[in-house]
């Protein structure tokens, strides 16, 4: 905690004891910037996948389809029987049979607009909407078996699960990418800090000669690397945000690929990336400085 307060407090004289030049400045700035830029996209991907999983889950979980296949002369009777069964089933909010036009619209992508649905033995479909509590699918199937022999209940579980699972895994991969980006940033900052400490062995020797504690010496390096990483990450995150903002907006036709950006308060999350990069750099540099200073003792 004292390290963090010491880091925040400005100490111009202490900052000046470490020479300012060196390739480690550019390395840290560039690494932090690049990693923050990638982190913004990984975050956008993860959040979009999360939204998609949630949307698919909610939309599909509350609807089911009852398909009735029966000879033409029994079709209306069986549809009416099925609707009666559904009306008396607890957990079902509404059920309605699709009319010919709706069924034709469903088949249109495959058979074109001129398909004579009435002339073909296509099954009739009943759309079921559940209440929040849902219904007992096994119980309903048993009842339908007895009263509407041509009915097949599809509660969407079979094809909803893999979709939701895929979206969830995509979200997980997004978060994993963010973790890996954080790890890569820590590794780059550690390398840069090690190089800076090694290049400044003479400076460290002078500071020790005049009575500097290891904490003081480490703090001079840690503060510098933390500020560099935070600055680089701020620039990278800003450019990343601009890139996400320029992506096409979400629409029904484009679906997932056009909904890759942030929505609502999610736009605020990338603001956390620079301070997190700073914390990562702080921990990485502090560990590197402690190790190097122990070695130089």
């Amino acid at each position: 905690m004292s390290d963090i307060s010491g880091l925040i407090q400005s100490d111009v004289s202490a900052d000046r004891v470490v020479p300012p030049a060196g390739f480690t400045v550019r390395l840290t700035l560039f690494s932090a910037g690049a990693m923050a830029f990638l982190a913004v996209f990984a975050l956008a991907l993860s959040l979009a996948a999360g939204r998609l999983a949630s949307q698919w889950g909610n939309e599909l979980a509350r609807s089911s389809t009852l398909r009735i296949s029966a000879p033409a002369e029994q079709m209306d009777t069986q549809v009416a029987a099925a609707l009666r069964v559904l009306e008396t089933t607890p957990g079902i909010e509404s059920a309605r049979a699709l009319d010919a036009a709706e069924q034709q619209a469903l088949l249109e992508p495959w058979f074109g607009p001129d398909l004579p649905v009435e002339a073909l033995p296509v099954p009739r479909l009943i759309e079921i909407l559940e209440t929040g509590a849902g219904y007992d699918a096994s119980g309903l199937r048993l009842r339908l078996q007895g009263e509407v022999p041509g009915a097949v209940l599809d509660d969407h579980t079979r094809w909803r699960r893999p979709l939701v699972s895929a979206a969830s895994r995509l979200r997980m991969l997004g978060w994993l990418s963010i973790l890996l980006i954080g790890g890569a940033l820590a590794a780059m900052v550690t390398l840069a800090a090690n190089a800076a400490l090694a290049a400044n062995a003479q400076v460290i020797a002078v500071l020790r000669l005049v009575g500097a504690t290891d904490t003081y010496i480490a703090r001079a390096f840690v503060r510098r690397f933390t500020l560099r990483a935070t600055t680089g990450a701020a620039v990278g995150a800003l450019i990343g945000l601009l890139g996400v903002w320029l992506l096409p907006a979400a629409d029904d036709a484009g679906s997932f690929l056009t909904g890759l950006g942030f929505s609502g308060w999610h736009w605020g999350l990338p603001v956390l990336i620079p301070p997190l990069a700073g914390v990562t750099a702080f921990l990485a540099t502090r560990a590197a400085a402690a190790r190097v200073l122990r070695g130089l003792a």
Binding site: S13, A14, R16, V17, P19, Q202, V206, L209, T213, Y216
Partner: peptide, 20 residues
């Protein structure tokens, strides 16, 4: 042994600086 990037006066003051 001095810190070559600092002027003489800051090098002389270095023990004060590091002791806070």
């Amino acid at each position: 042994q001095f810190l070559d990037h600092l002027p003489l006066i800051e090098n002389v003051a270095l023990p004060l600086t590091v002791s806070g």
